[in-house]
Structures are given as structure tokens and as C-alpha cells.
């Protein structure tokens, strides 16, 4: 098992990037499902959908854990690339669910209407913008850190920098000493 330090360093960055960025939006509760359909190969304008799937969809899923996200990919080289949004009736107890933080067994909600977004030959940002417009979703951005935390982070950064400076100084001295020792040895030999 890798050490906790090495695991943590990139995990922190990874988690930040899944919370923030293009695609970090909170969908209204009447959306039950988002279905993507595009090709495996990026020919004929299927690169944008793929990028959307890889970059934006994880963020969307993180902020909307209860929305089903289904990805269907085809072997074809041509054809449409669509994003289908399924709307359904808002479950009655959604508010009480939020308050109680109680998870019930996932109930398949019946789709009342759908909207299609054409993803062919488009960039992920562009697709996301249309998605937000059509669903009137709320964009998410990380709440700013409290001033105390900010101060502490600054202090820690400075401390770390100083520690590194000391460390490098010692390392440099060691290297120099090692060189001199090696030279002495070679002369004595």
C-alpha cells in the first residue's frame, strides 16, 4: 500500500477538481436522469461529447448524486451525439429527505418529458452552457475560506518554505563535503 502522504497529495487536487470547474452545477429536483449517447471513436464531431463525458459528467454527478447518468457508446463512425434530459414529477418528500438526510431505496421515477441537446461538433463548455440554460441549474463554486483558515494556510506555506530552505542548505553542505571526501579518498588510494 502506498504511504498516506503520497496518496493524499494528489487526492486533494483530484477531489478539488471534481468539485469545481465546468460541469459543477446543481440541477433542479425535477430532473431524474441524464442520458448521453455518442460513439467510441472521435471521428465526425464526437470528440466534444467525449470530453464532456470525461471532464464535466463526474462533476455533475458529484453535485447531483441522485440523478441517474447513463452513457451509451456506439461502435459506429458516424451518427448523432445527443444528451437527453429526463424530467419527472418532483417527489413529495424531497424536502423532508433533505432535512432528515435519510436515504430511501432508489425509486424509478417516471419520465414526464424530455429535452434533447445536440452535442455534435461542440466543445464541452458549450454543451454545459446549453444544459444549464435549459434546466435552469445553479452553478456551484467553492465557498471562500474563512479568514482564519486563510491566515493559517499562509503561515504554513511560509513555514514550509523556510524548512525547505534549511533543508536545501544542509543538503548543499553535505554534497560539498561528500565531494571533498571523495577527492581525499581518491588521493589516499
Amino acid at each position: 500500500m502506498p504511504s498516506p502522504t503520497s496518496r493524499l497529495r494528489w487526492l486533494r487536487a483530484k477531489l478539488y477538481s471534481v468539485r469545481n470547474g465546468t460541469g459543477a452545477a446543481i440541477l433542479p429536483p425535477n430532473i431524474s436522469r441524464i442520458a448521453l449517447s455518442f460513439n467510441y471513436k472521435s471521428n465526425n464531431g464526437h470528440m466534444g461529447p467525449r470530453k464532456f463525458f470525461r471532464e464535466c459528467l463526474p462533476r455533475l454527478k458529484y453535485h447531483n448524486p441522485d440523478v441517474d447518468m447513463i452513457v451509451t457508446r456506439k461502435e459506429a463512425l458516424e451518427g448523432p451525439a445527443t444528451l437527453t434530459i429526463h424530467f419527472s414529477d418532483v417527489p413529495v418528500d424531497i424536502k423532508s429527505q433533505l432535512n432528515k438526510k435519510k436515504q430511501t431505496t432508489p425509486v424509478v421515477r417516471e419520465t414526464t418529458s424530455t429535452i434533447d441537446i445536440d452535442m455534435l461538433n461542440r466543445y464541452p463548455d458549450d454543451i454545459m452552457e446549453e444544459l444549464v440554460q435549459k434546466t435552469s441549474a445553479t452553478l456551484y463554486s467553492e465557498p471562500p475560506r474563512s479568514p482564519e483558515l486563510e491566515e493559517e494556510a499562509e503561515y504554513l506555506a511560509v513555514k514550509r518554505e523556510n524548512e525547505l530552505k534549511e533543508k536545501y542548505k544542509l543538503q548543499r553542505a553535505d554534497r560539498r563535503k561528500g565531494k571533498d571526501d571523495a577527492l581525499k579518498d581518491s588521493i589516499l588510494a
Partner: peptide
């Protein structure tokens, strides 16, 4: 689990 589901989407 919430993070893992986001990473495993699709």
C-alpha cells in the same frame, strides 16, 4: 461513496 460514484460515472 459520493466521490467514488462521481469518478465512476458512466
Amino acid at each position: 461513496m459520493r466521490y467514488i460514484r462521481a469518478f465512476e460515472v458512466g
